[in-house]
Design a binder for these strands. Structure first.
Length: 599
RNA sequence: GGCCCCGUGGUGUAGCCUGGUCAAACACGCCACCCUGUCAAGGUGGAGAACGUCGGUUCAAAUCCGAUCGGGGUCGCCA
């Protein structure tokens, strides 16, 4: 069947005169009475089929009843079209297949939405009939480019002497991090496996095992709420290397990603070296740890202006160790006060900052709620720090360093999008390095690991671990692209003394250390090589590469926001017998129980 | 768990703010017929939704209010 098959998108004028057989779906049909045109579609493209009642009567009788999405086998002779019949908009537009026989291989019900065009359809319908949505040209192209990209990643890794290793899917539940998906064990009733959030621990054990250079195109599963760029199961390019420093990892990623990007013919290109920025610098200049550097609007430290201010709110903040920072918005005088008071204020409040104030630099001078508080001297400082021009506006937030950064960082991202301040075809990729080792939970006050507890501490900061843990930098790094976190990694701790100090800083008792991570600590007693690695989110990279706004459009069978797969309707209830075998009993109405359980 | 947006024939939308003229309009699709050169074919005719669901306000509700369900976005969450 396939040996004599020609792809619908393949024929060109040089094939004219050839007899051929094509198979495919009816993309469109144009019935002129005595002659019927059918656009036949397969994954390679679309070919116009001509069925003439005089010349192929039997085929014509067949084709009369054909409808959209029917599956046909068509044999005929490829001919050049008359000059006036050429369609320059189609790859096969210079030729057409004159049919001698037309066989209906399958009929099709009327599709629930248009398959032959890239029109909007409600997400639930797309997901319910995913197999039909997959017929659309756009998603087929996305998935094909995805395959090319992943293939290129794999090739690049092999060329760099990495070994692809499969790690288990049924693993021990990890105590920290995201919520686990649990899998009950039949043989050990009451016990559960977890599905991996990432192969983190196994890849480190591969290093202890002497494999030296590991990689995997790894599925990762996290039971957390979904977002436009987040699915509960996703794919990572997972890497771990021994006897290396950051530089080696950076080089592998830069080489691998930029070459694969090119191979997949993704949007634009990636540089052969990614710029670097420390976490400190990212926070100071952009207010976020994943800056979108396609546009400016950098944060300006305005503390020098308000050092001796009569404006009580700012004075209080500064006295308590807070900061005053602002963003200069070029041409911002066109922003209505209502936006400042409502839209921007909401953004700032969501970041838990107290509020913002603003100043317009109009022809007649600075105008705004805070204008009256500045002395002549302060205006001079203000002008030199902001370098604002007539027509600009400045928004100012005063709060703790963290909240100020969060508020202005969020506002900056909003402004960048709302005021179209960047070229959407640009790829702004960079390394963000030297993340803090620890962070304090604002609500509980507890110290936690920002990356994970096996992240190596920056050599200069080991001494600060006990007295000033929040100032300790780590050897963790992220790749950030267009304001989106693409992946992260770190050099790992292999020194037991340092590991112990980290656990102490995190207030994890020796008993808990043993219980939670005992197997890793034990492995590290047997000569662990210095090592480190990285994990890059493949779905997100593809989103950026294809300029898709939603991760669902780069995944063949994605889930909806409730983490359901609407085609097969998973998750679903299972038989009591199945549960009994696993030693599991469910609450009578899980949904109800959950909603009434205080959290 | 919070917040925001959406829910009208198979699909996409209009109508909803300013309730009655709406057993609801338009495009595509669907059905029938006509048509031998189109390519988003064309023409003629036709079927198809009581406006997600429930409740309320009102003489009167697609239109107002409440709840609920479904879809999406987002904050929390994602070491």
């Amino acid at each position: 069947m396939t040996t004599e098959r020609t792809g619908c998108g393949v024929p060109r004028k040089e094939h004219a005169g050839n007899s051929m057989t094509v198979y495919g779906w009816v993309d469109r049909r144009r019935d002129h009475g005595g002659v019927i045109f059918i656009d036949l579609r397969d994954r390679s493209g679309i070919l116009q089929i001509v069925i003439n009642s005089d010349k192929a009567h039997e085929a014509y009788e067949q084709a009369k009843d054909v409808r959209l999405e029917w599956v046909l086998k068509v044999t005929g002779e490829l001919r050049l079209r008359d000059a006036e019949a050429v369609n320059p908009n189609k790859a096969t537009g210079e030729v057409e297949l004159h049919v001698s026989s037309c066989e209906v291989l399958a009929r099709a019900a009327t599709p629930p939405f248009p398959v032959n065009e890239d029109s909007e359809v409600e997400e639930s319908i797309r997901l319910r009939y995913r197999y039909l949505y997959l017929r659309r040209e756009r998603i087929q192209r996305n998935l094909r480019q995805r395959a090319t990209f992943v293939h290129a990643l794999r090739t690049a890794m092999m060329e760099q002497e990495f070994t692809e290793i499969e790690t288990p899917l049924l693993i021990r539940a990890t105590p920290e991090g995201a919520r686990d998906y649990l899998v009950p064990s039949r043989i050990s009733p009451g016990s559960f496996y977890a599905l991996p959030q990432s192969p983190q621990l196994y890849k480190q054990l591969c290093m202890v095992g002497g494999l030296d250079r590991y990689f995997q195109i790894a599925r990762c599963l996290r039971d957390e709420d979904l977002r436009a760029d987040r699915q509960p199961e996703f794919t990572q390019l997972d890497i771990e290397m021994s006897f290396i420093t950051e530089e080696d990892i950076f080089q592998v990623l830069e080489r691998t990603l930029s070459s694969s990007w090119k191979a997949a013919e993704f949007n634009g290109e990636l540089p052969s070296k990614f710029p670097r920025m420390t976490w400190r610098e990212a926070m100071d200049r952009y207010g976020v740890d994943k800056p979108d550097v396609r546009f400016g609007l950098e944060l300006v430290d305005l503390a020098p202006v308000f050092r001796n201010t009569s404006f009580k709110v700012f004075a209080d903040v500064l006295a308590k160790g807070g900061v005053v920072k602002g963003i200069v918005i070029p041409g911002g005088c066109d922003i209505p006060r209502s936006d400042m008071e409502h839209t921007y204020m909401d953004i700032v409040h969501r970041a838990r900052a107290h509020g913002l104030t603003y100043l317009y630099y109009r022809e007649e001078g600075w105008v705004g709620p805070a204008a009256k508080f500045l002395s002549e001297e302060e205006w001079t400082t203000f002008a030199s720090l902001t370098k604002a021009k007539t027509g600009d506006a400045v928004v100012i937030v005063a709060d703790t360093p963290g909240r100020t950064a969060a508020a202005l960082g969020a506002l900056r991202n909003h402004l960048g999008a709302a005021r179209k301040l960047f070229d959407p075809s640009e790829n702004a990729i960079l390394w963000v390095t030297e993340f803090p080792m620890f962070e304090r939970d604002e609500d509980t006050g507890a110290i936690g690991a920002l990356h994970h507890p096996f992240t190596m501490v920056h050599a200069d900061d080991i001494d600060k671990m006990t007295e000033d843990p929040l100032m300790v930098r780590s050897r963790a790094y992220d790749i950030v692209m267009n304001g989106r976190e693409i992946g992260s990694g770190s050099i790992r701790i292999t020194n037991p003394d340092i590991q112990r100090k980290v656990f102490e800083a995190l207030a994890i008792s020796p008993e808990d250390q043993q219980r939670k991570f005992g197997f890793l600590l034990e492995a590290f007693e047997y000569g662990p090589p210095p090592h480190g690695g990285f994990a890059a989110g493949i779905d997100r990279l593809i989103m950026e590469g294809l300029r898709e706004e939603n991760i669902r459009d780069v995944i063949a069978f994605p889930k909806n926001q409730q983490a359901q797969e609407l085609m097969t309707m998973a998750p679903a209830l299972v038989d009591d017998a199945q549960l009994r075998e696993l030693g599991i009993a469910t609450l009578p109405n899980p949904r109800h129980e959950l909603s009434t359980t205080p959290s």
